[in-house]
Amino acid sequence: MDYGYFDSGNFTPEEMIIAAGLVPKRILGDSAITTTVEADKYLEPNLCYFARNLLNQAITGNLKNLAGILFTHGCDCTSRQYDVWKVHADVKDLYYLNVPLKRDKIALKFLLKELNRFKSHLEKISGNTITNEKLEVAIDQCNETRSLLRELYRFCKNSSPVLTGSEFFRVIVKAQTLEKAVANELIHAKLQEVKQRVPTGGKKFHVLLTGTPLDYPDFIELVESCDLDVVGVAFSMGSDYFARDVEKTGDPIGDIARFLVAKPPNPTKHPPDPFLDFVLDEVKEVQADGIIYQALKFCEPYLYDSVYILNRFKEEGIPALFLEHEYTTQGLASLRTRIEAFKEILGGTK
């Protein structure tokens, strides 16, 4: 049975959910929804539209088939929504996992306690005992997913990419919503197919996308329709999801905790420098000509950090475009002119 997770910071211990006999499934918004009437009864209109979108789905019963939903401590908006969901959401079970801000020994000790509490909760709702052996198998499955995604990602990053960013992103979404064994077969098949492709040649400017977590490919497709190659997707649902593996030492819960603590916190947590360094390293790796930093309207953490981050890009000599946009797909077309103008700027830097 599927077990959902609402995670703006990419700190869900999927391995533990799998070891409980459940399938971790990232809850996705519905970008076709233009109104959130039910959620608007309980949330301010200037609150993150993505969060309102998910709450609207929960209230209207779209998520009631899940065995439960995990909230992780991402941004303040999603964290505080947990209290609203407890009262108004039509779901079977809710659980809140508190992820520490710091990345030191005390934070690791705190997270270990949180993970053990979550383990007990999963055992209670699933009726299954989570053993070290089951956790080791789950870690192997998730590591395989991450490894396959990294290998597939290489075909976006070539000088003449044979895999588009939007096509790759669709695979990433499936990796976070399907059973891992099924997802791994799908990624492996895609990898074999992509290896047979022949570069078409022709030079397009290469851009890396970062900023607010995206969960639909329409934004990436818009950028590509402006004759740009998206060669990097450096956000929580993108490369941050598969950038590294869980290192096994024989202590599976400890290994998962160390894996999560070692992840660079994204701009939903301060300071933003660790995640910014992650983005800058990826810019160099994919040899991007420029960066598009996109932020959802009312996504305060990313909007707050945007000035500092864009200044860092400028200091590094990297052309960057900042786009603030609605969550719905209807408003994306209005961004086309700015993206096309950015392409002209990239042309002037060569």
Results as ranks from 00 to 15, higher is better:
residue 91 V to E: 08
residue 279 V to H: 08
residue 294 Q to M: 13
residue 119 K to A: 14
residue 266 N to C: 15
residue 133 E to S: 15
residue 116 N to E: 15
residue 42 Y to W: 15
residue 316 E to Y: 05
residue 180 K to S: 13
residue 100 P to E: 10
residue 66 L to E: 11
residue 66 L to Y: 13
residue 203 K to F: 11
residue 283 V to N: 00
residue 220 I to K: 01
residue 43 L to W: 11
residue 44 E to A: 12
residue 177 T to G: 02
residue 239 S to G: 00
residue 229 D to L: 00
residue 230 V to H: 01
residue 79 S to M: 15
residue 257 A to K: 12
residue 176 Q to G: 11
residue 343 K to P: 06
residue 304 Y to I: 08
residue 224 E to Y: 08
residue 68 G to V: 05
residue 198 V to Y: 00
residue 285 E to M: 09
residue 215 D to V: 03
residue 39 A to M: 12
residue 257 A to R: 07
residue 182 V to T: 12
residue 306 S to W: 07
residue 160 S to R: 00
residue 336 R to T: 13
residue 201 G to E: 08
residue 59 I to V: 14
residue 215 D to K: 01
residue 191 L to R: 00
residue 196 Q to H: 05
residue 258 R to G: 03
residue 232 G to V: 03
residue 94 L to C: 11
residue 147 S to A: 06
residue 45 P to M: 12
residue 200 T to I: 08
residue 257 A to G: 12
residue 237 M to W: 03
residue 241 Y to V: 00
residue 262 A to T: 02
residue 168 F to R: 01
residue 226 C to M: 09
residue 118 F to S: 04
residue 302 Y to T: 03
residue 323 L to N: 08
residue 253 I to Y: 08
residue 119 K to Q: 15
residue 257 A to I: 12
residue 137 V to H: 10
residue 216 Y to M: 02
residue 67 A to S: 15
residue 229 D to Q: 00
residue 64 K to W: 09
residue 241 Y to M: 10
